[in-house]
Design a protein around this nucleic acid. Structure first.
Lengths: 235, 235
DNA sequence: TCAAAAGTGTTAGGGGTACACCCATGT
DNA sequence: ACATGGGTGTACCCCTAACACTTTTGA
């Protein structure tokens, strides 16, 4: 027996929801689709899974194609497989979301794909069921950021507390008291205060911080309190 | 243009991690694989995705095939797609986990598939990468149960507090003080105390409770406190 | 009457939230 | 000098965790 002979093979794609933060607003990176159907309409960056690559490899390849970035935070989100998603031919799509430092993004690469950043609160209609994908990604990022320190992936290596707070406020669409916020964040031991300041945002300037990588990896499981002394809750 | 002509189609399977709770131990339901490769070895229940069904439909079909149950808690977990997972032919597997009331499971159906319940702490070696799938499911169930009242799906309609506590202790592999546990659980408003008792577990008997479905649906988002007044964190 | 599990209340401490003022600096 | 955003401390309250005894009843 060499093959599962009677079974149907299906087209498999990967679509990436790419998040960035410009200091003010959470954004997603969209492209103009280059081929039919829905040519020239706004779409997530995606591509078909190739025979010799894993899903994670496909996602990384697709992300690199558009952003030229490697080693960024990329996590599988959900697989969408309703039979009519793509009108041309049934295609199952495995979605990933990426968190990138928007400053590392090379603007010129956008041209090849006619890519643009759009605020998460106001972006164009997307093809197929991609609207639903973005919604799922938004939920997941909130969900995860509520318990794990993933939002740092959206910031440069050096950042200020006001920047970080704005990011949290964006993601959770809420207002946070800065005194409580800084206490809480600093109490995690995740941050190292640097000696220099960012003078861009104000006259006085705000101190830069960077991640304490030891604590960061150790505490990635973080913030849980429903169950006393659980065995593991990580991931 | 009628097809994405140059792309490779891939075999797509669904595998289900089926959890049950017998009052004492968390268990998973495994079958003896009926065909090559790995014939007669222990495996998750799975099957290929058919051309005219969605992934959710495939998962429900597969679950029903083995358990005859419908409408049970079933959630997509993760999609496994390394190229060498299945030695015969590349197969991407979308995994789902199911939480079922073990009492509703019809033992006789097991015979067709040579199915058996195994304690999550000690189950046989599984085929391919299914060990990893079970690990992922275990993590996910803990993760989710820490914040959402999903464990009720593993219990019958009427259950006692000691039963519920044992279940939590199993899932999180920890010991919980019963006074604090009952206070916390009852404070959620999710439970309705019934007038009759379960006399099976003790001489005195323990009161039955059932879910308050209004509150259950309303509070499914539950237990979060990192961010004050978040917009939404549901899922 | 004894063993085994169910059920219940109090206290102390820590963490969270609410809240207001001073500081540094560029214009 | 003043406007703008950065930075810090305290008090109160609630929630959590720790902890022990009584009740019921079948054997």
């Amino acid at each position: 027996m060499q093959k599962y002979s009677k079974q149907t093979r299906i087209l498999l794609a990967v679509d990436c929801i790419i998040f960035g933060f410009d200091g003010d607003t959470l954004k997603i990176l969209l492209i103009k689709r280059a081929f039919q159907p829905e040519k020239d309409n706004w779409s997530l960056m995606g591509g078909f899974v190739q025979p010799q690559e894993s899903l994670d490899q496909a996602a990384n390849r697709i992300l690199k194609q558009l952003t030229d970035l490697e080693g960024v935070y990329l996590e599988q989100l959900h697989t969408f497989g309703s039979t009519k998603r793509d009108p041309i031919e049934r295609t199952v799509s495995v979605t990933y979301f990426a968190l990138i430092d928007i400053n590392k993004y090379q603007t010129q690469l956008s041209k090849d794909y006619h890519a643009e950043w759009f605020p998460l609160k106001r972006f164009p209609k997307l093809i197929f069921d991609q609207q639903e994908m973005v919604e799922a990604a938004k939920k997941r990022i909130r969900y995860k950021a509520a318990m794990h320190p993933i939002l740092f992936e959206l910031l440069p290596g050096k950042f200020t507390l006001p920047q970080l707070q704005t990011l949290y406020e964006c993601v959770f669409n809420t207002q946070i008291d800065k005194r409580n916020f800084s206490k809480r964040i600093l109490a995690t031991g995740l941050l190292i205060k640097l000696t220099d300041k960012d003078k861009a945002g104000s006259k006085r300037g705000a101190f830069y911080y960077q991640l304490n990588m030891q604590n960061y990896y150790a505490k990635f499981q973080a913030f849980m309190n429903f169950i006393p002394n659980p065995d593991t809750l990580s991931q």
